[in-house]
Amino acid sequence: MSNLKISKLHKHFGAVDVLKDINLDIRTGEFVVFVGPSGCGKSTLLRCISGLEAASSGSIEIDGQVIDDVEPAQRGIAMVFQNYALYPHMDVFGNMAFSLKMQGLAKDEIRRKVEAAAEKLQLTPYLDRLPAQLSGGQRQRVAIGRAIVRDPKVFLFDEPLSNLDAALRVRMRMEIAQLKLQLPNTTMIYVTHDQVEAMTMAQRIVVLKDGKVEQVGTPLDLYERPQSQFVAGFIGSPRMNFFTGRHAETFKAHTVGVRAEHLDIVGAGGVWSGKVVYSENLGADTFIYADIGAEAPVVVRQPGKSVFAAGAEIALVPKARELHLFDEAGRPVPK
């Protein structure tokens, strides 16, 4: 069943078109990630769903009901903000209870709901603390708890981890994934510019670019079958190698893309050859950067500790099945 349906959504700020003809169908209980470079409109799209921003045209439905004119608080959505947006003068309990208080719930019911949510998020010992007395991760959990108590149909996250350090980000990513398991019927929409976050958390990813949906699909879909050069380059790390000109002519395409792990190093007679510029040894993998006369050095991923000195001659063979061919417009060319 479709939980959230967005049709023909447009949004412009003055003369600037931020969102152009967005159509999306999100199922109940799905975890969907909006990803894209900054300025692609992903946050604006999330804000249109939340009602914090009004769409210029088009409509949004939740559970079959058009909510375009419904106020943010009445849409059955909850949102976790980038900077948490905790009320600084209220303790954790007060922050989590505020929306229930605004709904006019009875005191003991509020207490019961807040305590249940705090239990779920291991916040019980901190209920009487002020936000300033909490660590970054705890604040993040309070922000989530504040959303949980409302028992929303749709749960929105706006780059919630971007203010945390790297280690904490990985841990919170796991916690949010676990939270999703605990709330199987709650739809979650998560906005990030970090494709790793998108790949690890999403059931489906929506890639946005310049206010348009570039591709929708599961993480592996996007990785293996990118529908545009942009998606191919955006998803995956290290970035996909792209060649144009004579390197691409061999394959009768405008652009050829190949991922670092889909290049084999051969002794001689490879498709491309050149010199090693630099190599990065990460322990489990080694990334070798080689100059083969293309615009940028090509990255090759080798398992284990391969040793290539700078300047060493190298020949490369791409795995033919893993090549991505694109035309001038960046659209895929059938092989």
Binding site: G51, E53, A54, E71, P72, A73
Partner: peptide, 13 residues
């Protein structure tokens, strides 16, 4: 469509 329609969070406030 109406010319100017105040919506979004500012309407709530």
């Amino acid at each position: 469509m109406q010319a100017v329609k105040r919506r979004g969070w500012r309407r709530a406030l």
